[in-house]
Simulated assay, not measured.
Amino acid sequence: MKKVISTIAVSGLATLMASTAFAAGETITINSFGGAYEKAHRACVITPFEEATGAKVQVVTAYSADAFAQLRAQAEAPQFDVIHFSGGQEIVGAKEGLLSPIDPASLSNAADLYDFAKANLAAGEGPAYSIAAIGLVYNSVTVPKEPASWSDLLDKAYADHIVLTDISNGYGMLGFLMLNKVKGGSLDNIQPGLDAVTELLDNGAIVVSTSPEIQQEFAQNDAWVAPYASDYAYTLRKAGLPAAFVQGKEGTPASFITANLVAGRDNQELALKFIDMSISAKAQACFAEQLRYSPTNAKVVLDGEVAADVAYGEEAVAGLIRFDPTVIEAKRSEWVDAWNRTIAR
Protein backbone atom coordinates (compact mmCIF):
# COMPACT_ATOMS: atom_id res chain seq x y z
CA MET A 1 0.00 0.00 0.00
CA LYS A 2 2.79 2.43 0.90
CA LYS A 3 4.48 1.67 -2.38
CA VAL A 4 1.29 2.51 -4.31
CA ILE A 5 0.84 5.81 -2.44
CA SER A 6 4.48 6.69 -3.05
CA THR A 7 4.15 5.95 -6.75
CA ILE A 8 1.05 8.13 -7.02
CA ALA A 9 2.75 10.94 -5.12
CA VAL A 10 5.81 10.83 -7.37
CA SER A 11 3.62 10.73 -10.46
CA GLY A 12 1.64 13.75 -9.28
CA LEU A 13 4.82 15.64 -8.46
CA ALA A 14 6.24 14.85 -11.88
CA THR A 15 3.09 16.18 -13.54
CA LEU A 16 3.24 19.39 -11.52
CA MET A 17 6.94 19.83 -12.28
CA ALA A 18 6.29 19.33 -15.98
CA SER A 19 3.56 21.96 -15.88
CA THR A 20 5.77 24.33 -13.91
CA ALA A 21 8.72 23.77 -16.23
CA PHE A 22 6.53 24.57 -19.19
CA ALA A 23 5.34 27.84 -17.65
CA ALA A 24 8.34 29.04 -15.64
CA GLY A 25 9.45 32.46 -16.76
CA GLU A 26 6.42 32.97 -19.01
CA THR A 27 4.01 35.88 -18.58
CA ILE A 28 0.39 36.30 -19.47
CA THR A 29 -1.40 39.64 -19.51
CA ILE A 30 -4.96 40.03 -18.27
CA ASN A 31 -7.29 42.83 -17.27
CA SER A 32 -9.01 43.13 -13.90
CA PHE A 33 -11.54 45.63 -12.59
CA GLY A 34 -9.59 47.38 -9.84
CA GLY A 35 -10.42 48.01 -6.19
CA ALA A 36 -11.97 45.26 -4.09
CA TYR A 37 -12.57 43.16 -7.20
CA GLU A 38 -8.93 43.13 -8.20
CA LYS A 39 -7.90 42.31 -4.63
CA ALA A 40 -10.20 39.30 -4.66
CA HIS A 41 -9.08 38.39 -8.18
CA ARG A 42 -5.50 38.17 -6.97
CA ALA A 43 -6.43 36.10 -3.92
CA CYS A 44 -8.77 33.72 -5.73
CA VAL A 45 -7.05 33.17 -9.08
CA ILE A 46 -3.95 35.22 -9.93
CA THR A 47 -1.69 34.32 -7.00
CA PRO A 48 -2.72 30.63 -6.90
CA PHE A 49 -2.10 30.44 -10.65
CA GLU A 50 1.38 31.94 -10.33
CA GLU A 51 2.23 29.58 -7.46
CA ALA A 52 0.96 26.51 -9.34
CA THR A 53 2.60 27.23 -12.70
CA GLY A 54 5.62 29.44 -12.03
CA ALA A 55 4.28 31.87 -14.62
CA LYS A 56 3.73 35.57 -13.98
CA VAL A 57 0.48 37.44 -14.48
CA GLN A 58 0.66 41.05 -15.61
CA VAL A 59 -2.53 42.87 -14.64
CA VAL A 60 -3.92 45.87 -16.49
CA THR A 61 -6.69 47.58 -14.54
CA ALA A 62 -9.47 48.16 -17.07
CA TYR A 63 -13.23 47.85 -16.83
CA SER A 64 -15.10 45.98 -19.54
CA ALA A 65 -15.84 48.84 -21.94
CA ASP A 66 -12.31 50.22 -21.77
CA ALA A 67 -10.74 46.79 -22.06
CA PHE A 68 -12.85 46.03 -25.12
CA ALA A 69 -11.90 49.33 -26.72
CA GLN A 70 -8.24 48.44 -26.19
CA LEU A 71 -8.77 44.97 -27.63
CA ARG A 72 -10.34 46.43 -30.76
CA ALA A 73 -7.62 49.04 -31.15
CA GLN A 74 -4.93 46.37 -30.80
CA ALA A 75 -6.60 43.81 -33.06
CA GLU A 76 -3.44 43.22 -35.10
CA ALA A 77 -1.19 42.94 -32.02
CA PRO A 78 -3.23 42.45 -28.85
CA GLN A 79 -1.63 42.90 -25.43
CA PHE A 80 -4.09 40.71 -23.53
CA ASP A 81 -3.93 36.93 -23.33
CA VAL A 82 -7.08 36.63 -21.21
CA ILE A 83 -9.65 39.39 -21.16
CA HIS A 84 -12.51 39.70 -18.65
CA PHE A 85 -15.89 41.26 -19.37
CA SER A 86 -19.01 41.90 -17.31
CA GLY A 87 -21.15 43.64 -19.91
CA GLY A 88 -21.48 41.03 -22.63
CA GLN A 89 -18.63 42.36 -24.79
CA GLU A 90 -17.52 38.79 -25.45
CA ILE A 91 -20.53 38.35 -27.75
CA VAL A 92 -19.36 41.16 -30.04
CA GLY A 93 -15.68 40.27 -29.64
CA ALA A 94 -16.31 36.69 -30.71
CA LYS A 95 -18.25 37.81 -33.80
CA GLU A 96 -15.44 40.18 -34.75
CA GLY A 97 -12.82 37.43 -34.48
CA LEU A 98 -11.02 39.09 -31.57
CA LEU A 99 -11.53 36.04 -29.33
CA SER A 100 -10.55 32.43 -29.93
CA PRO A 101 -12.98 29.52 -29.75
CA ILE A 102 -12.40 27.25 -26.76
CA ASP A 103 -12.59 23.46 -26.88
CA PRO A 104 -14.35 22.40 -23.65
CA ALA A 105 -11.97 19.45 -23.50
CA SER A 106 -9.11 21.90 -22.93
CA LEU A 107 -10.67 23.00 -19.62
CA SER A 108 -10.65 20.38 -16.89
CA ASN A 109 -13.39 22.22 -14.97
CA ALA A 110 -15.73 22.90 -17.89
CA ALA A 111 -17.83 19.81 -17.21
CA ASP A 112 -18.73 21.21 -13.77
CA LEU A 113 -20.16 24.48 -15.12
CA TYR A 114 -23.86 25.07 -15.50
CA ASP A 115 -24.82 24.85 -19.16
CA PHE A 116 -25.50 28.57 -19.57
CA ALA A 117 -21.97 29.40 -18.41
CA LYS A 118 -20.34 27.48 -21.25
CA ALA A 119 -22.98 27.64 -23.96
CA ASN A 120 -20.95 29.43 -26.64
CA LEU A 121 -17.36 28.37 -26.05
CA ALA A 122 -17.07 27.07 -29.61
CA ALA A 123 -18.15 30.48 -30.92
CA GLY A 124 -15.40 32.25 -28.98
CA GLU A 125 -17.44 33.45 -25.99
CA GLY A 126 -15.46 32.58 -22.85
CA PRO A 127 -17.03 30.86 -19.86
CA ALA A 128 -18.86 32.80 -17.17
CA TYR A 129 -16.99 32.30 -13.92
CA SER A 130 -19.06 34.60 -11.71
CA ILE A 131 -22.49 36.20 -11.77
CA ALA A 132 -23.66 39.49 -10.34
CA ALA A 133 -27.28 38.64 -9.55
CA ILE A 134 -29.77 41.52 -9.45
CA GLY A 135 -32.62 41.32 -6.98
CA LEU A 136 -33.98 43.24 -4.02
CA VAL A 137 -31.63 44.59 -1.35
CA TYR A 138 -33.61 45.46 1.77
CA ASN A 139 -33.29 46.57 5.38
CA SER A 140 -34.06 43.42 7.33
CA VAL A 141 -34.92 45.35 10.51
CA THR A 142 -37.05 48.30 9.43
CA VAL A 143 -38.87 46.83 6.43
CA PRO A 144 -42.55 46.18 7.38
CA LYS A 145 -42.53 42.90 5.47
CA GLU A 146 -39.86 41.08 3.52
CA PRO A 147 -40.15 41.64 -0.23
CA ALA A 148 -40.43 38.53 -2.35
CA SER A 149 -41.08 39.73 -5.89
CA TRP A 150 -40.36 42.54 -8.30
CA SER A 151 -44.03 43.43 -8.17
CA ASP A 152 -43.61 44.18 -4.46
CA LEU A 153 -41.78 47.37 -5.44
CA LEU A 154 -45.18 48.82 -6.35
CA ASP A 155 -46.73 47.85 -2.99
CA LYS A 156 -47.62 51.09 -1.24
CA ALA A 157 -46.47 49.52 2.02
CA TYR A 158 -42.98 50.51 0.83
CA ALA A 159 -43.93 54.02 -0.35
CA ASP A 160 -41.34 56.72 0.38
CA HIS A 161 -38.76 54.02 1.13
CA ILE A 162 -37.80 52.74 -2.35
CA VAL A 163 -34.44 53.60 -3.93
CA LEU A 164 -34.08 53.22 -7.69
CA THR A 165 -30.74 53.43 -9.49
CA ASP A 166 -30.32 55.42 -12.68
CA ILE A 167 -30.03 53.27 -15.79
CA SER A 168 -26.69 54.86 -16.63
CA ASN A 169 -25.53 52.39 -13.95
CA GLY A 170 -25.30 48.84 -15.33
CA TYR A 171 -27.07 47.30 -12.35
CA GLY A 172 -29.71 50.02 -12.52
CA MET A 173 -30.32 49.15 -16.16
CA LEU A 174 -30.82 45.45 -15.39
CA GLY A 175 -33.17 46.22 -12.50
CA PHE A 176 -35.23 48.51 -14.72
CA LEU A 177 -35.42 45.96 -17.53
CA MET A 178 -36.65 43.33 -15.07
CA LEU A 179 -39.35 45.67 -13.75
CA ASN A 180 -40.30 46.36 -17.37
CA LYS A 181 -40.53 42.63 -18.07
CA VAL A 182 -42.72 42.02 -15.01
CA LYS A 183 -45.06 44.78 -16.13
CA GLY A 184 -45.42 43.21 -19.58
CA GLY A 185 -42.68 45.01 -21.48
CA SER A 186 -39.84 43.69 -23.60
CA LEU A 187 -36.60 44.90 -25.15
CA ASP A 188 -38.74 46.20 -28.00
CA ASN A 189 -41.07 48.08 -25.63
CA ILE A 190 -39.87 49.67 -22.38
CA GLN A 191 -42.95 51.85 -21.88
CA PRO A 192 -44.47 49.51 -19.23
CA GLY A 193 -41.27 49.90 -17.22
CA LEU A 194 -41.30 53.67 -17.60
CA ASP A 195 -44.94 53.74 -16.46
CA ALA A 196 -43.97 51.66 -13.41
CA VAL A 197 -41.15 54.09 -12.62
CA THR A 198 -43.60 56.98 -12.83
CA GLU A 199 -45.88 55.20 -10.36
CA LEU A 200 -42.96 54.52 -8.01
CA LEU A 201 -41.88 58.15 -8.12
CA ASP A 202 -45.47 59.24 -7.46
CA ASN A 203 -45.40 56.95 -4.40
CA GLY A 204 -42.26 58.71 -3.12
CA ALA A 205 -39.40 56.61 -4.51
CA ILE A 206 -36.11 58.38 -5.23
CA VAL A 207 -33.48 57.87 -7.93
CA VAL A 208 -29.73 57.75 -7.27
CA SER A 209 -26.83 57.26 -9.66
CA THR A 210 -24.18 55.34 -7.72
CA SER A 211 -23.88 52.58 -5.15
CA PRO A 212 -22.46 54.88 -2.42
CA GLU A 213 -25.67 56.91 -2.69
CA ILE A 214 -27.67 53.73 -2.01
CA GLN A 215 -25.63 53.22 1.16
CA GLN A 216 -26.29 56.80 2.18
CA GLU A 217 -30.04 56.35 1.73
CA PHE A 218 -30.04 53.16 3.81
CA ALA A 219 -27.86 54.71 6.51
CA GLN A 220 -29.38 58.17 6.79
CA ASN A 221 -32.76 58.37 5.08
CA ASP A 222 -34.63 55.23 6.15
CA ALA A 223 -34.54 53.43 2.80
CA TRP A 224 -36.11 49.98 2.92
CA VAL A 225 -35.77 48.41 -0.52
CA ALA A 226 -33.50 48.92 -3.54
CA PRO A 227 -33.33 46.83 -6.71
CA TYR A 228 -29.60 46.13 -6.97
CA ALA A 229 -26.89 43.45 -6.98
CA SER A 230 -26.48 40.70 -4.40
CA ASP A 231 -22.92 41.74 -3.58
CA TYR A 232 -24.11 45.14 -2.39
CA ALA A 233 -26.17 43.69 0.45
CA TYR A 234 -22.86 42.33 1.73
CA THR A 235 -21.22 45.74 1.27
CA LEU A 236 -23.97 47.35 3.35
CA ARG A 237 -23.61 44.75 6.09
CA LYS A 238 -19.87 45.33 6.23
CA ALA A 239 -20.73 48.99 6.79
CA GLY A 240 -22.85 48.00 9.80
CA LEU A 241 -26.29 48.12 8.16
CA PRO A 242 -28.86 45.30 8.51
CA ALA A 243 -29.12 44.51 4.81
CA ALA A 244 -30.38 41.33 3.17
CA PHE A 245 -30.90 40.17 -0.41
CA VAL A 246 -33.70 38.25 -2.10
CA GLN A 247 -34.20 37.08 -5.65
CA GLY A 248 -37.53 38.25 -7.05
CA LYS A 249 -39.75 35.25 -7.69
CA GLU A 250 -40.35 36.33 -11.30
CA GLY A 251 -36.66 35.86 -12.11
CA THR A 252 -33.21 37.28 -11.55
CA PRO A 253 -31.46 39.46 -14.10
CA ALA A 254 -27.76 38.77 -14.13
CA SER A 255 -24.49 40.30 -15.23
CA PHE A 256 -22.19 37.52 -16.45
CA ILE A 257 -18.48 37.93 -15.70
CA THR A 258 -16.53 36.02 -18.32
CA ALA A 259 -12.91 34.99 -18.95
CA ASN A 260 -12.08 35.05 -22.65
CA LEU A 261 -9.22 33.72 -24.74
CA VAL A 262 -7.75 36.45 -26.96
CA ALA A 263 -7.03 35.55 -30.58
CA GLY A 264 -3.62 36.09 -32.10
CA ARG A 265 -1.49 35.37 -29.02
CA ASP A 266 1.30 32.81 -28.84
CA ASN A 267 0.76 31.38 -25.36
CA GLN A 268 -2.86 30.28 -25.53
CA GLU A 269 -2.14 27.02 -23.72
CA LEU A 270 -1.02 28.93 -20.64
CA ALA A 271 -3.94 31.33 -20.98
CA LEU A 272 -6.32 28.37 -21.03
CA LYS A 273 -4.80 27.17 -17.76
CA PHE A 274 -5.65 30.56 -16.25
CA ILE A 275 -9.22 30.39 -17.53
CA ASP A 276 -9.51 26.83 -16.22
CA MET A 277 -8.47 27.93 -12.74
CA SER A 278 -10.98 30.80 -12.90
CA ILE A 279 -13.87 28.38 -13.42
CA SER A 280 -12.75 25.94 -10.72
CA ALA A 281 -14.96 25.34 -7.69
CA LYS A 282 -12.23 26.60 -5.37
CA ALA A 283 -11.80 29.92 -7.17
CA GLN A 284 -15.53 30.51 -7.47
CA ALA A 285 -16.13 29.76 -3.79
CA CYS A 286 -13.43 32.32 -3.03
CA PHE A 287 -15.18 34.98 -5.16
CA ALA A 288 -18.49 34.21 -3.46
CA GLU A 289 -16.98 34.50 0.01
CA GLN A 290 -15.01 37.67 -0.69
CA LEU A 291 -17.40 39.56 -2.97
CA ARG A 292 -20.71 37.67 -2.91
CA TYR A 293 -20.68 36.88 -6.61
CA SER A 294 -22.78 33.90 -7.62
CA PRO A 295 -20.87 30.79 -8.75
CA THR A 296 -21.40 29.07 -12.08
CA ASN A 297 -19.67 25.84 -11.05
CA ALA A 298 -22.18 23.30 -9.75
CA LYS A 299 -19.61 21.79 -7.37
CA VAL A 300 -19.16 24.98 -5.32
CA VAL A 301 -20.16 24.51 -1.69
CA LEU A 302 -21.10 27.63 0.30
CA ASP A 303 -22.08 28.09 3.92
CA GLY A 304 -25.43 29.49 5.03
CA GLU A 305 -24.55 33.19 5.22
CA VAL A 306 -22.72 33.30 1.90
CA ALA A 307 -25.31 31.12 0.17
CA ALA A 308 -28.08 33.46 1.31
CA ASP A 309 -26.41 36.41 -0.40
CA VAL A 310 -26.04 34.88 -3.86
CA ALA A 311 -27.89 32.90 -6.50
CA TYR A 312 -26.71 29.50 -5.31
CA GLY A 313 -27.62 26.05 -6.51
CA GLU A 314 -29.36 24.63 -9.56
CA GLU A 315 -32.82 25.97 -8.69
CA ALA A 316 -31.54 29.49 -8.00
CA VAL A 317 -29.50 29.78 -11.18
CA ALA A 318 -32.45 28.47 -13.19
CA GLY A 319 -34.07 31.83 -12.48
CA LEU A 320 -31.21 33.83 -13.96
CA ILE A 321 -32.16 36.06 -16.87
CA ARG A 322 -29.64 37.56 -19.28
CA PHE A 323 -31.04 40.46 -21.25
CA ASP A 324 -29.28 40.56 -24.62
CA PRO A 325 -26.23 42.82 -24.10
CA THR A 326 -26.05 43.67 -27.81
CA VAL A 327 -29.62 44.99 -27.77
CA ILE A 328 -28.94 46.98 -24.59
CA GLU A 329 -25.91 48.61 -26.16
CA ALA A 330 -27.72 49.40 -29.40
CA LYS A 331 -30.66 51.01 -27.61
CA ARG A 332 -28.89 52.50 -24.61
CA SER A 333 -28.98 56.14 -25.77
CA GLU A 334 -32.63 55.94 -26.75
CA TRP A 335 -33.56 54.34 -23.43
CA VAL A 336 -31.54 56.80 -21.36
CA ASP A 337 -33.30 59.70 -23.07
CA ALA A 338 -36.71 58.17 -22.32
CA TRP A 339 -35.66 57.45 -18.73
CA ASN A 340 -34.44 61.00 -18.17
CA ARG A 341 -37.71 62.42 -19.45
CA THR A 342 -39.61 60.08 -17.11
CA ILE A 343 -37.70 60.97 -13.94
CA ALA A 344 -37.57 64.73 -14.64
CA ARG A 345 -39.97 66.17 -12.06
Rank of each mutant, 00 (worst) to 15 (best):
D166I: 00
A77T: 10
L320Y: 07
V10A: 13
K145L: 07
G319M: 03
I275L: 05
D303F: 00
W224P: 00
Y171I: 11
E199I: 11
P325K: 05
D152V: 04
F33S: 01
E26M: 12
K331R: 10
F245T: 04
A263F: 01
I162D: 01
F245R: 02
A254T: 08
N203M: 14
A128W: 07
P242Q: 08
L272R: 04
P227C: 09
N260H: 09
A311E: 02
D66I: 06
W150D: 09
I46D: 05
I83G: 02
G185F: 04
I91H: 10
E90T: 09
F22S: 13
E314Y: 08
S86K: 04
D112A: 14
V207R: 06
N340A: 10
N203T: 12
M178I: 07
F274H: 04
N260F: 04
A111N: 12
Y138L: 03
G175F: 03
A123H: 11
E76Y: 09
Y234E: 10
D231C: 09
Y293E: 03
A110I: 06
T235D: 13
P227G: 08
L302C: 07
I131K: 00
N260I: 10
R332E: 12
V143M: 15
D324F: 10
A196N: 03
S186D: 00
G97Y: 02
T258Y: 07
K249S: 15
A18W: 08
C286K: 05
A157N: 09
L177S: 08
G93N: 02
A14L: 15
G34P: 06
V301Q: 11
A148M: 11
G319Y: 03
F256T: 07
Q70R: 14
E96H: 12
F22G: 11
S64H: 02
S108A: 14
W335P: 09
N297I: 01
N31L: 05
D303V: 06
L154H: 01
A307G: 08
E146A: 15
I257F: 12
A308D: 15
D155R: 05
V246K: 01
K282S: 14
D188P: 02
L201S: 06
V306I: 15
A259W: 03
V4Q: 13
A223G: 05
F274C: 01
F274L: 10
S64I: 08
A43F: 01
A119S: 11
F22Q: 14
A233H: 12
T29S: 09
Q79V: 13
A62L: 11
I102F: 05
V301W: 01
I343W: 04
P104D: 02
E334K: 11
K282E: 15
P227A: 07
